[in-house]
């Protein structure tokens, strides 16, 4: 068996007195679609943000592709990483936000090309070609020169996915990517994600779309109160939850 893409051991995180993560234990294998579900406040988004160090963890070990996140271990001691090293690590991890967070002063194309050119210092021609390919992949070639405020929510989220993919990450994090969308726009974003999963991308998806989880997910974790309550193949967990809290949560969400 190959090394896991993400490994979390006893990850703790609190905001002031509020303990949000209470010892998260999980492993995400390379190439798998890993779904995180749970009630709001269960810590799933916070955990996702810890994976690319947007939040720092208080205790435990969190590693991506065999390297610790935010720290270096040397002689049994942890050393905080420099901002430069944190940024370097983040290049390999794409993230898609609930509220898209496209750069409003740049066109869709410029949004996609910004980081590869400025961060990876790739040539504009190479990046342009990749950006065109990505826009085609998310079905928005005709919107290349349009500013985000002229796009629908679904279109914005597809551009945001293309923007993250332009950095050629080995891991993609999705933080409730369809929660801010009108219901009729959810499908187009899920289609893009499904296609990405088929291409073998390792994906961690925080979602309330149980249909997507069941169809596309390889693994599903139910979180509550900052801990993993139960995990397994989505079909098994969704159809036959073992835990009382999982049952009560699933009975409340539409499937």
């Amino acid at each position: 068996m190959t090394a896991p893409m993400v490994k979390s051991e006893q990850v703790h995180k609190s905001f002031g007195h509020l303990q949000v993560l209470n010892g998260i234990e999980l492993e995400v294998a390379t190439g798998e679609v890993f779904c995180l579900v749970g009630p709001s406040g269960s810590g799933k988004s916070t955990f996702l943000r810890c994976i690319n160090h947007l939040e720092r963890i208080d205790a435990g070990r969190l590693s991506v592709d065999g390297e610790l996140i935010g720290y270096r271990e040397h002689g049994g001691k942890l050393y905080e990483l420099h901002e430069r090293e944190v940024a370097r690590k983040r290049r390999e991890i794409g993230m898609v936000f609930q509220t898209f967070n496209l750069f409003p002063h740049m066109t869709a194309l410029a949004n996609i090309m910004e980081a590869p050119i400025r961060v990876k210092r790739e040539s504009a021609a190479v990046v342009r070609e990749r950006a065109d390919r990505l826009l085609d992949r998310v079905g928005l070639t005709h919107k290349a020169d349009v500013y985000p405020n002229q796009l629908s929510g679904g279109q914005q989220q597809r551009v945001a996915i293309a923007r993250a993919l332009a950095m050629e990450p080995k891991l993609m994090l999705f933080d409730e990517p369809t929660s801010a969308l009108d219901p009729e726009l959810v499908g187009e974003v899920l289609d893009v994600m499904r296609q990405l999963a088929d291409d073998g991308m390792t994906m961690i998806v925080v979602t309330h779309e149980m249909g997507f989880a069941r169809e596309v997910g390889d693994n599903l974790v139910f979180m509550d109160g900052g801990v993993v309550i139960e995990s397994g193949h989505p079909r098994d967990v969704l159809a036959n939850p073992q835990h009382e809290r999982t049952k009560s949560f699933l009975s409340k969400v539409l499937m």
Binding site: L54, R90, G94, F103, A115, M167
Partner: peptide, 17 residues
């Protein structure tokens, strides 16, 4: 919006950039 900074950081952009 803070989300702008987070999106930039998530793409590997450093603070000054």
């Amino acid at each position: 919006n803070d989300g702008q900074v987070e999106a930039a950081h998530a793409l590997g952009m450093r603070r000054l950039l």
